[in-house]
């Protein structure tokens, strides 16, 4: 990355970052960094990261940052936000943290419309622990705990985060899924998510991301899996939160 393209809010001392080559985390964080710069909010930012590969982002930005516990980033930022509403908080986590161990916090935070911005990085696996099946692992996808390919009869269908919140989050909130295959669009979504928080509402952005290390893919295989297989199942775009009554 050239000096010029580095967002101002980056902590230069922590670059080059420690994610594996080809990892999507760096791109999600770049989109976030650009959005922070555009809104000029770095002096009010608190960036909290989960435990998972997201923990490597703990000193990524030159903004107040902290590592929390696996799945518990969201209640921490809720506490921060309730105590100091003028701060702008981002909860940054993996799909295991967001959709498995911490799902109750995601649902409840959305339900309460807490003004925080949540970014869940969907790389279809538990990356930091060595590539186990995640709630987002695709049907047939091979992981350490689904060696024969994920069997959805046995484990259920891959979890669609933003879609699941449509009936939970209120219309004022923001729900979207972006992808590291389109960083500019992802940045726009994250920016909207931060603006929504500034307006006093909940915002949730899932980012489709890559994990070549655990996918065991080369560059072409990585992008092919992201764009075609993940892209086919996980629709990119904004979703209208509705909290519609669920009719049988």
């Amino acid at each position: 990355m050239s000096e010029l393209s580095m967002p101002r809010c980056y902590n230069r001392e922590s670059k080059p970052h420690r994610f594996c080559p080809g990892c999507g985390h760096g791109l999600v964080l770049k989109a976030l960094g650009m959005a922070i710069d555009e809104l000029d909010i770095s002096s009010r930012m608190v960036f909290a990261c989960d435990i998972g590969c997201s923990l490597l982002a703990w000193n990524f930005f030159s903004v107040d940052s902290l590592q929390t516990h696996h799945g518990r980033t969201l209640p921490v930022v809720v506490g921060i936000k309730r105590a100091r509403p003028e701060l702008v908080t981002v909860a940054y986590m993996g799909d295991g943290g967001g959709y498995a161990i911490g799902l109750q916090h995601l649902v409840s935070t959305a339900l309460r419309n807490d003004p925080v911005t949540v970014i869940v990085v969907n790389n279809t696996t538990y990356a930091m622990t060595g590539g186990q099946m995640a709630p987002t692992t695709l049907e047939g996808q091979h992981t350490k705990t689904s060696p024969g390919g994920r069997d959805i009869e046995e484990t259920g269908a891959p979890f669609k985060g933003p879609e699941s919140l449509i009936g939970v989050a209120p219309p004022e909130s923001y729900l979207a899924r972006g992808t590291v295959a389109n960083v500019i669009r992802l940045k726009k979504m994250i920016r909207k998510g931060l603006e929504r928080q500034l307006r006093g509402d909940f915002a949730f952005i899932e980012a489709l991301s890559t994990c070549p290390t655990n996918w065991r893919t080369d560059a072409a295989g990585t992008w092919g899996f992201l764009e075609h297989e993940m892209g086919a199942y996980y629709q990119v775009g904004e979703m209208a939160a509705g909290r519609e009554p669920i009719t049988p």
């Binding site: 902290l66 929390t68 516990h69 518990r72 209640p75 921490v76 930022v77 809720v78 506490g79 921060i80 936000k81 309730r82 105590a83 100091r84 701060l87 109750q104 916090h105 649902v107 409840s108």
Partner: peptide, 21 residues
Amino acid sequence: LQTEDELSAGFATLGAVLTGK
């Protein structure tokens, strides 16, 4: 705030404490 569970109660308390509350 009545939270969704004790984990949330504890971690949200930590969040508030971090801000000096």
